[in-house]
Amino acid sequence: MKTFTPKPADLTHDWYIIDATDVVLGKLATRAALLLRGKNKPTFAPNADLGDHVIIINAEKIALTGKKMDKVLYAHSGRPGGLRADSYAKLLQTNPERIIKNAVKGMMPKNRLSKVELDRLHVFAGPEHPHTPQKPQSVEIDKISQGK
């Protein structure tokens, strides 16, 4: 029996939508990374670009557990004095997309292929998104079950 190797003609990039309302950040990031890599497909190959498009809506309603509100997310512009430090509490109000993109990026492998796959991640703060013509399939993730 020969090993199956996916060809470019075998590639299909489906669209999935995830509602981030009351979903724990880590669970959301792992599920999104799994879909972006294409590990949910039976034809998965680590060297092939089999990933799907993932739309995440309601990013401002994400659930952060533990002491993540005090955690700081760093970014550097590459210029002298270009270190930027923003707390998750501030980012949740101003730019919640950055929190989710950073978490998903951390779940992806560190190679050139993951950079291409991360371009298929579309994060929106509110419930509206411009990708309705693609007819995305809904993905359900367990909500938080904490004392909130």
Rank of each mutant, 00 (worst) to 15 (best):
L91G: 02
K68I: 09
K61N: 08
D52S: 09
I62L: 15
K67P: 06
T94V: 15
G51I: 13
G81T: 08
G82P: 14
G81M: 02
L92W: 01
E60P: 07
M108Q: 00
K41P: 04
T43W: 06
L91M: 11
M107L: 00
I62D: 14
I55R: 09
A75L: 07
D49C: 10
M108L: 10
D70Y: 12
E97C: 09
G38I: 01
P109H: 00
K71H: 05
V116D: 09
R112S: 15
A59R: 12
P80A: 03
N40L: 06
N111K: 00
N40H: 15
D52M: 06
D70V: 14
S77I: 07
I62Q: 03
G78W: 02
L92N: 03
A63C: 08
K71G: 05
R112Q: 11
A103W: 00
T94I: 13
G82H: 04
K71L: 08
A48F: 10
N40K: 07
G78L: 02
G82D: 03
N111A: 01
R112F: 09
H76A: 11
I100K: 01
R98W: 03
D52G: 11
D52K: 00
D49A: 07
A48Q: 14
M107Y: 00
H76P: 04
I57E: 14
K61H: 11
P42W: 01
V104Y: 00
K115E: 13
L92R: 11
T65C: 05
S77Y: 06
A89F: 06
I56R: 04
F44V: 08
Y74Q: 13
R98G: 03
S87T: 15
N47V: 13
M69K: 05
V104E: 00
R37Q: 09
Q93K: 10
M69E: 11
T43V: 13
M69T: 04
R79C: 14
D49R: 09
Q93Y: 08
L64E: 10
Y88D: 05
D86L: 09
E97K: 08
I57M: 10
P46G: 04
A103F: 03
N102M: 06
A85T: 14
K41S: 05
N111S: 00
V116R: 14
G51T: 13
L73S: 09
K105A: 15
K41D: 08
T65Q: 15
A89L: 02
E97S: 02
L50I: 12
M107V: 02
G51P: 07
N95D: 14
Y74S: 08
A75Q: 09
F44H: 12
K68Y: 10
L92E: 02
P96T: 02
R112H: 14
N40M: 05
K71Y: 07
T94W: 04
K61M: 13
L92T: 15
Q93P: 07
D70G: 04
A103E: 01
M107N: 00
